[in-house]
Amino acid sequence: MSALSSRLAERRVAMPDPGVGHVLAELAPGSTARVEGFSDHLPASTCRRLFDLGFTPGAGVEVVRKAPAQDPVIYRVAGCEIAIRRSLARGVRVSLG
């Protein structure tokens, strides 16, 4: 197991204090933010998958658009557009700007 996998399994990925900051699902289309880390309620395998997709701590994320039913939401990260469900986006902690 790599050092990153161990940290993700223990949920120690640049987490802000609970109740501080924002989650990706709260952002409106056109908003930008920086990834801070992942929530404790996400399984380690899901955190790893999001990390592999480019949602790494410090990465810039832009909300591109929402589907007509508001789910999934399309985000631009690392030069790619990625659609994820809002339930997953609630587990990604971000800072605005």
Score class of each variant (00 low, 15 high):
residue 1 M to N: 09
residue 1 M to E: 09
residue 3 A to P: 08
residue 4 L to E: 10
residue 5 S to I: 01
residue 5 S to K: 05
residue 6 S to N: 05
residue 6 S to L: 05
residue 7 R to P: 06
residue 8 L to C: 03
residue 8 L to A: 01
residue 9 A to P: 00
residue 10 E to D: 14
residue 10 E to K: 10
residue 11 R to D: 11
residue 11 R to C: 10
residue 13 V to W: 03
residue 13 V to C: 06
residue 14 A to M: 10
residue 15 M to R: 15
residue 15 M to F: 05
residue 16 P to L: 15
residue 17 D to P: 11
residue 17 D to R: 07
residue 17 D to G: 05
residue 19 G to D: 12
residue 19 G to V: 09
residue 20 V to I: 15
residue 21 G to A: 13
residue 21 G to K: 06
residue 25 A to P: 07
residue 27 L to Y: 13
residue 28 A to P: 12
residue 28 A to S: 15
residue 28 A to T: 07
residue 29 P to Y: 10
residue 30 G to L: 11
residue 30 G to V: 13
residue 31 S to V: 11
residue 31 S to F: 03
residue 32 T to M: 08
residue 32 T to W: 03
residue 32 T to E: 11
residue 34 R to H: 13
residue 34 R to W: 05
residue 35 V to H: 06
residue 36 E to C: 09
residue 38 F to E: 06
residue 40 D to K: 14
residue 40 D to Y: 12
residue 41 H to V: 07
residue 41 H to Y: 13
residue 42 L to N: 00
residue 43 P to G: 13
residue 44 A to V: 05
residue 44 A to K: 07
residue 45 S to P: 05
residue 46 T to R: 13
residue 47 C to K: 01
residue 48 R to Q: 07
residue 48 R to C: 02
residue 49 R to L: 13
residue 51 F to I: 02
residue 51 F to G: 00
residue 52 D to W: 00
residue 52 D to T: 02
residue 52 D to Q: 07
residue 54 G to E: 03
residue 54 G to D: 00
residue 54 G to T: 04
residue 55 F to Q: 00
residue 58 G to A: 07
residue 58 G to E: 06
residue 58 G to I: 02
residue 59 A to N: 02
residue 60 G to R: 12
residue 60 G to W: 07
residue 61 V to Y: 01
residue 61 V to C: 13
residue 62 E to S: 01
residue 65 R to E: 15
residue 67 A to V: 04
residue 67 A to M: 03
residue 67 A to K: 11
residue 68 P to E: 09
residue 68 P to G: 12
residue 68 P to I: 11
residue 70 Q to Y: 09
residue 73 V to W: 10
residue 73 V to F: 10
residue 74 I to H: 12
residue 74 I to D: 02
residue 75 Y to L: 04
residue 76 R to V: 01
residue 76 R to C: 03
residue 77 V to A: 03
residue 78 A to F: 01
residue 79 G to Y: 00
residue 81 E to T: 09
residue 81 E to L: 02
residue 81 E to D: 14
residue 81 E to M: 01
residue 83 A to Y: 06
residue 83 A to E: 10
residue 86 R to F: 04
residue 86 R to E: 10
residue 86 R to G: 14
residue 89 A to V: 04
residue 90 R to T: 06
residue 91 G to D: 03
residue 92 V to A: 02
residue 93 R to F: 10
residue 93 R to D: 11
residue 93 R to G: 12
residue 95 S to V: 14
residue 96 L to G: 07
residue 96 L to H: 04
residue 96 L to S: 12
residue 97 G to S: 02
